[in-house]
């Protein structure tokens, strides 16, 4: 564990708390992509299968349980409790285009051709693009509630913090995880447009609005 990774994990944790807070206080999942949330459930379950057979640390164990639990809870809230506030007609990104290529990439790029390792690779690749249905939706509506943009910013910053963590680990431990690094850089890259608008508008107290 190092400073950057901790900041990344805390940012990830914060993003989920902001998301649940938004759903609870506005009693609505308006502006949120159900597809993106469903992809995160798939990401966490396929990546954290090792919960059942590998002990890393208490921190690792608790965080994994939290990420699986909170993503399932989010999906439940969106699907059942606040279902009427979700508009499927604007959540139209085809997730087949993400899941298929990620599955193929995972079969090609993995550290060992075993079920758990291929699923782990799959989860890393899928996480890197899981935000696309959400960003696509944002692009379509052209605006977002401020609380939703805080959620997206925290979620984007989380993986960005992992990048200095990997550099740090390379120099201190000699550890390199090319699959996570390439996917993590791609994942952060997808947020650049969003970050630009977030930091130039929302952080200055303006509403999140995309230029027409």
């Amino acid at each position: 564990m190092n400073f950057f990774r901790l900041l990344g994990d805390l940012s990830h944790l914060a993003s989920i708390l902001i998301l649940l807070h938004k759903i609870k206080t506005t009693r609505s999942c308006r502006g949120l992509s159900f597809k993106t949330q469903a992809l995160y459930v798939a990401v966490f379950i396929t990546r954290y299968l090792d919960l059942t057979y590998r002990w890393v640390s208490l921190y690792n164990f608790v965080m994994k349980l939290f990420f699986i639990g909170s993503s399932c809870a989010t999906l439940y809230l969106m699907r059942y409790k606040y279902c009427p506030t979700h508009d499927p007609s604007i959540d139209t990104f085809k997730i087949e285009y993400l899941v298929g290529p990620c599955a193929i990439l995972a079969l090609i790029f993995n550290y060992k051709f075993s079920v758990s390792e291929v699923l782990w690779s799959f989860s890393i690749f899928l996480e890197s693009v899981a935000i696309l249905p959400q960003l696509f939706m944002l692009q379509r509506t052209g605006e977002a509630e401020t609380i939703t943009t805080h959620y997206l910013a925290a979620l984007g910053i989380y993986r960005a913090f992992y990048i200095p963590n990997w550099i740090y680990r390379y120099f201190t431990e000699g550890v390199v995880d090319p699959i996570a690094i390439v996917a993590g850089i791609a994942q952060t890259g997808l947020y650049l447009d969003f970050f630009y608008v977030y930091f130039t508008k929302v952080m200055q107290g303006e509403k999140f609005e995309l230029p027409a």
Partner: peptide, 10 residues
């Protein structure tokens, strides 16, 4: 170069 197969990250 050591591949991180321990997957100790989240």
């Amino acid at each position: 170069v050591i591949l991180d197969q321990a997957h100790d990250e989240l």
